[in-house]
Design a protein around this nucleic acid. Structure first.
Lengths: 153, 153
DNA sequence: ACCGATTATCTCGTTCGGCGAGAGAATAGT
DNA sequence: ACTATTCTCTCGCCGAACGAGATAATCGGT
């Protein structure tokens, strides 16, 4: 966007290149697995929640993915048909559906993220703990810059 | 994915959070501008090429976006209708169309990337040149890890 | 205990982005 | 000139996502 070739701008372009690359990887993986891009985003969200022990309902999932209720239902139909997730009535509030992640989804997630994470962890081996902390500080600052409102907003 | 709470894994999660955030920003901007996500990706590609002085044809654009020819034609119809791009016959090889980026597209690009880049550059102010170089090395390594094949094929 | 308001999910009908197949136009090789 | 190749566009279709509204369960006030 700018012809500036400052260190800061180089990082901006690098960061963008990384996001583009990860996006492409995701799209390729989704296509190979018979998933739509949205399905992969949903899978990621569900696995994150599962890992954090959060309970996810269709409403919350749709909100996270910016889908309306009709789209969310269709999405869950697809994921359920693929055996990646299961709908389970909440017995405490019987209006709600709790989404249960099936083992198959965890396996699928690992088959995608495993190699990627492995590569990134290997890459980190080349750096000292102090250097990794510098990177952490930068990425944290970049996250704030990209998300002015903040997660709490 | 892993419960490991090592510095390397923290960076993985941070990097993912940044990409997710940038992705969301893009989707919001696209919706506000009456663009589809694909249209924004196309705009980015076209502006990059414009900046680099590259010549882009529908075929090349479709290849970059992983669209087939029919989808590419529809995409260009949308962008042309919005006045962001213009089709121009290549007089040397009259089978080809050269895509010309209109000033409106450059303005639109800046209105999206400008604030984002500004925030990222500001964030970089807090770091010494040596620290920024550490980040550059890490992101370069991460890019390689995400793209094992490499840009060169 | 009842009734309206609220919340959560699903159904129906529609829109439109993207795909596959193939047509049309220009170029390159023999 | 003839054929193969390259580049773009047209046509018909599929399906993801939307808007509107139906259905079902819970909550609050009386």
């Amino acid at each position: 966007m700018s012809d500036d070739d400052t260190p800061a701008m180089r990082l901006v372009h690098l960061l963008r290149a990384v996001t583009v690359e990860l996006h492409l990887r995701g799209a390729e993986f989704a296509a190979r697995s018979g998933l739509h891009p949205t399905d992969l985003r949903a899978l990621i969200r569900l696995l994150d929640a599962d890992r954090a022990g959060e309970v996810v309902t269709p409403g919350r999932l749709g909100e996270a993915l910016r889908l309306n209720s009709a789209g969310t239902t269709a999405l869950l139909d697809r994921l359920e048909r693929l055996g990646l997730v299961r709908r389970s009535r909440d017995e405490r509030d019987r209006r709600r559906i709790l989404l249960v992640v099936e083992p198959k989804a965890v396996e699928l997630g690992w088959s995608f993220f495993g190699p990627l994470i492995g590569g990134l962890v290997d890459a980190a081996q080349e750096f000292t703990p102090g250097e990794l902390d510098v990177v952490r500080r930068y990425l944290t600052a970049a996250l704030d810059a990209a998300d002015p409102v903040g997660k709490g907003g």
